[in-house]
Computed example of a mutant assay.
Amino acid sequence: MSQATVLYDAPGPKARTRSRIISVLGVLALAALLGWVVWRLIQPQVAVNGNETPGMLDPSRWDVLAYSEVWQYIGRGAWNTIRAAAVAMVGAMLLGMLFVFGRLADSALVRVPVAVILEFFRGMPVLLMMLFILLVASTGAFWAVVIALIIYNGAIVGEALRAGILALNKGQREAGLSIGLTPVRTRLLIEFPQAFTQMLPILVAQMVVLLKDTSLGYIVAYSELAKTVKDASTFYGNRYLFTFWVVAVVIYLAINLTVSWFGRRMARFAAARGGRGAGATKGLAGPAAAEAGGEIAITPPPGSSAR
């Protein structure tokens, strides 16, 4: 008899055999699909008028990548994408922190207006926001893209951090207040670091979305990577359209995977530091324990009996 686990019974011999068969069939199906895609890309393209052009993988469609000016042009587009995304990421994090303090304020005069503004920004399409900022504020293409990304993603980050703070044990806030910290310092020194660590995977995913949203900068004529690739394919001819878009996909994947890797490193570092901080502050009381970021333990006065 199979031993029961927490969620389900351990699979028996028949279930394991069936699982292996399904896995093999799935791998074969994926290999067949990949082979069909490659075969279709190799086949010559026949137009309506009967003209035949080489397949997508033909060397004549990739010779344009041998020109250094092509890579310089694409490199400028990639740099513009990274530059706009980096500035927008920092701004979105700072704006998200402000939204958190506003949404969790004790006064309704602050909390309600911030909630209305936040919901408005969350519901506004980024594309229209970029165009509106460019036409109304005349900021230029770069700042129209950056400001729109900061506003929209700042609202998302703020809601994520607010959810992380609300998920914390209320004893965290009560302990901070009991040792003399102000409500703002309690939220900043005790609640916010823990919420940031817990919500870091969501924040990293949102930063990847932010980076991809820089491609919407074409609406304000910002020369980011996607617009650069489109302009290059127009200049060199549509026969190189597939080539340039493959290059763009590879660059986007490299940048996004780098951001994801950096986020995972940050998460591990924060978890390790949190563990060391908890051990270092165990048994401490007062502002020093709160500022250390670890667990707060109120030491009983001498002579009292701890139950």
Rank of each mutant, 00 (worst) to 15 (best):
L7Y: 14
P13G: 07
R16F: 02
S19I: 08
A29T: 14
A29Q: 02
V37D: 03
Q45H: 14
V46H: 07
N51L: 04
T53Q: 10
P54M: 07
G55P: 02
R61D: 01
L65G: 00
Y67D: 09
Y67E: 09
E69S: 07
Q72N: 01
G77N: 07
T81D: 05
A85I: 01
V90I: 12
V90G: 06
S107E: 04
A108I: 07
P113T: 09
G123T: 10
G123D: 04
P125W: 09
P125M: 14
L128G: 15
M129T: 12
L135N: 05
A137H: 09
A144P: 06
A144Q: 10
V145W: 01
A148H: 08
Y152M: 04
A155C: 08
V157N: 06
E159S: 14
G164W: 03
Q172T: 03
G176Y: 15
G176M: 12
S178A: 15
V184E: 10
R185D: 15
R187K: 10
L188I: 13
I190H: 05
P193C: 11
F196I: 12
Q198N: 13
P201D: 03
L203N: 05
V209G: 06
L210P: 08
K212E: 06
K212L: 13
T214L: 12
L216G: 11
A221W: 09
Y222F: 15
Y222H: 12
E224V: 13
E224Y: 04
F235K: 13
G237R: 12
F242Y: 12
V249H: 08
V249D: 05
I251W: 11
W261V: 08
G263P: 05
R264Q: 13
A270H: 06
A272I: 00
R273I: 04
A280H: 10
T281V: 03
K282P: 00
A285T: 15
P287D: 07
A289G: 06
A290W: 04
E291L: 14
G293K: 15
E295N: 09
A297Q: 11
I298R: 06
P301C: 00
A306L: 15
R307N: 04
